[in-house]
Design a binder for these strands. Sequence first.
DNA 1: CCGCATCCGATTGGATACTG
DNA 2: CAGTATCCAATCGGATGCGG
Lengths: 127, 127
Amino acid sequence: MTHQTVRDWDRALVPTGAGRTAAPDPACPVEAALEAVRGRWTTLVIRELLHGPRGYREFRRTLPALSDKVLTERLAQLTALGLAERVETSGFPTRVVYRLTARGEALRPLMTELYRTGTELLTTPAR
Amino acid sequence: MTHQTVRDWDRALVPTGAGRTAAPDPACPVEAALEAVRGRWTTLVIRELLHGPRGYREFRRTLPALSDKVLTERLAQLTALGLAERVETSGFPTRVVYRLTARGEALRPLMTELYRTGTELLTTPAR
DNA sequence: CCGCATCCGATTGGATACTG
DNA sequence: CAGTATCCAATCGGATGCGG
């Protein structure tokens, strides 16, 4: 067996070179995924969007303690990442909704896994 | 069909009451999972630990840009959450290693999923 | 109805120097 | 070797007030 730059355990855990970073790097898949759910309230906003399109005031209703500023920031963040989009209906009165893009739907398995892992952590005592 | 407090989509996405929070809450599984991977360099330290036990200087070698301060913080954080443990061998010279606990091993599927989702996000164009 | 602008206190993490 | 301690700049997020 010849020398290999990539060891077996390395391949299993980080299949591509992008995962073997020596420092935080936006090109690392793990960083990219975390970027999408980063910040307080972000996963809550995503959860709402996973339930379906939502108007601004619907967020304010289901997440009462979320301020205008942070909500605006989160929607801008998700929009900038191409995970959600702002849709303005052409009727009257004009209605604005935010909805997940196909890209945003890619977060569903991650959210499920976060939920599953978190449940495991919460149910198994730390010590 | 009678009225239900919990709708079907709700059950699928957030199986238990803990997932239907109206604000950020440590008791929410998603928050609990994110707490474990929170902070710059954290997933990199976890990745190293998923490869096996590591000494302090091994971290400094494989993650050269990681400062003493943050490394210490991350190891303390993971230890406090019961995800890693500090093991001091009784031989001479004394050797110190950090290794994942059984609880910490629970993060492996999450790391894999973060990697998978991130790869999907990086390979599908935002627009 | 759907936000944006500003202020400000708290948290974060990098740089640097020091210790058992 | 295996960390601590201190300082500081940047980021984050809550409160409040304004605007199309």
